[in-house]
């Protein structure tokens, strides 16, 4: 099982950081962690992908579920520090237009 770090920043933004491979194996836990963060009041969520070496459609599905949950709660979900293999999947699925990647966690909600 891969590590997925979760933290809440001082401004209330929730950060989820999956390490290694975000595939079918980790997707369910990723989904739950994102839902739990939003339920606990962090409606602004950043998925920090700086340590994510590989992502498949299941991993992407978990992020999309988190995006919908966050938006329904009046917040948003943003991606930060996307690695090349993850970006390739975002582009293949046209999700790069919906989940616009920010360079870093700090910049994710600076707009």
């Amino acid at each position: 099982m891969i590590d997925i770090d979760v933290e809440t920043l001082a401004d209330g933004v929730g950060v989820v950081r999956p390490h290694g491979r975000l595939t079918m194996v980790a997707a369910r836990r990723m989904r739950e962690l994102l839902a739990d963060l939003v339920a606990a009041g962090s409606t602004r969520v950043v998925v920090d992908l700086s340590a994510t070496e590989f992502m498949d459609s299941s991993g992407l599905g978990a992020i999309i579920a988190g995006l919908k949950t966050a938006r329904q709660a009046g917040g948003d979900l943003r991606l930060a520090a996307v690695t090349e293999p993850v970006m390739a999947v975002l582009q293949l699925t046209n999700m790069d237009r919906v989940l616009r990647a920010r360079p870093s966690v700090e910049e994710a909600f600076r707009d």
């Binding site: 498949d56 459609s57 299941s58 992407l60 599905g61 978990a62 999309i64 579920a65 919908k68 999947v89 293949l92 699925t93 046209n94 999700m95 919906v98």
Partner: peptide, 19 residues
Amino acid sequence: SMPDAEAESGRGLPIALAS
């Protein structure tokens, strides 16, 4: 075909085919 942006599943084989 690739599902729309709201879909949480159904992208696996379209990704494979495109890849």
